[in-house]
Design a protein around this nucleic acid. Structure first.
Lengths: 195, 195
DNA sequence: CAAAGCATGTAAATAGTTACATGATTTA
DNA sequence: TAAATCATGTAACTATTTACATGCTTTG
């Protein structure tokens, strides 16, 4: 009953390390490019902060999974990275690894408020649901405007799964918006809104 | 364009503080009871680790939002808490606060692997999708066996929103499982599995 | 060429997790 | 009464975020 999610020995990549490695495999070269590309793709199911990106680049290079070369412009440092053969192999192993799974973690302040909405009146609760629906509608717009086009570019370059996953994100928010509509109707049925 | 998510001044509760406060409002008395109840309810959209619970209890009591009394048994310490009037008011303000919203954060190692699945062959990718579907099916079983019954108990005691939110969780995993089926079919259409 | 914005990276602070320590209570 | 399990809490560690520092590049 081994409960270890991600062993700290470096034979297996951590998820964050793999995310950085994978972004390079998809064509991002510098830490900055990784950050930008991640904002348009993995961001919605695996956020990466700047320090994590640079820390992982350092560690991955030390392990020989990526090779960096200096591309500084003047005083401004810059490093460009590519995968080594070991890096490609490590990424494939990580994707395949049947032991390498884990729970989906969700963290949503709006659902949290809704959970406790019995302490306020129905109008306030309905306001929360409206807020939650609006948030998903804005997310849908972001997917259509930014994330799906970026995934389409990856698809044109031969990588199809970013598109599948982006589509998942879009449909997830459609599901949430539709759910908000349904609870709101349930609430209205329970206690009709006084017009 | 104030980008501050949760101001550190204590006129507004942090989400985690509110989660603890809310669990007490719903009837949990000790840190331990909060932890147990949280595992059966808010866990799936707002996880709470033990140290966070006890840290928040201390802070909430210092602010006068909860009142604690000693209920030790022998050498073993134990404290039972109830909301003060200020605590009730703070919880209502937090639930209502229109500025108190934030992004839904998702973190899913399985989606992350799927995102990079172009580096492996189709059978390996299909295995990942199968893994993801199975995970949601197990989650569905947990909802049916534990989370929905707990929410029903809360409903019997007069709190209906836990039930709505639990239902959201269940339907979310139904959505995910159905999505897995659909991508798998898309993949099979693209490259029929060699039987 | 000055100002604005883009590109690159890091330090410091915060939040969250893992693992454990230990006393009470139940059960064999 | 010994062993197992339940209940309660904490110390130490790790991950993540916020905010910033700074140098290039473009544009008015």
């Amino acid at each position: 009953m081994s409960a270890i999610a991600v062993p700290p020995d470096r034979s297996t990549l951590s998820n964050t390390a793999a995310a950085v490695l994978g972004m390079i495999a998809l064509g991002a070269r510098s830490g900055y490019e990784i950050r930008r590309a991640a904002e348009l793709s993995v961001r919605f199911f695996w956020a990466l902060g700047p320090p994590q990106v640079y820390a992982q680049l350092k560690a991955l290079e030390a392990e020989g999974l990526i090779a960096g070369r200096d591309e500084a412009r003047g005083e401004r440092p810059r490093r460009h990275f590519t995968l080594t053969d070991e890096g490609h192999q490590a990424l494939r192993s990580w994707v395949t690894d049947p032991a390498g799974t884990g729970a989906m973690e969700l963290r949503d302040p709006e659902l949290l408020r809704l959970f406790f909405a019995d302490v306020v009146d129905h109008d306030a609760a309905r306001a929360r649901i409206g807020q939650m629906r609006r948030r998903s509608q804005e997310a849908l717009a972001t997917f259509d405007r930014e994330i799906l086009p970026a995934a389409a570019r990856a698809g044109a370059a031969g990588s199809h799964f970013p598109g599948h996953v982006a589509q998942f994100g879009r449909e997830l928010h459609e599901f949430i918006a539709a759910w908000c509509d349904r609870v709101e109707q349930t609430l209205d049925a329970d206690e009709p809104r006084r017009s």
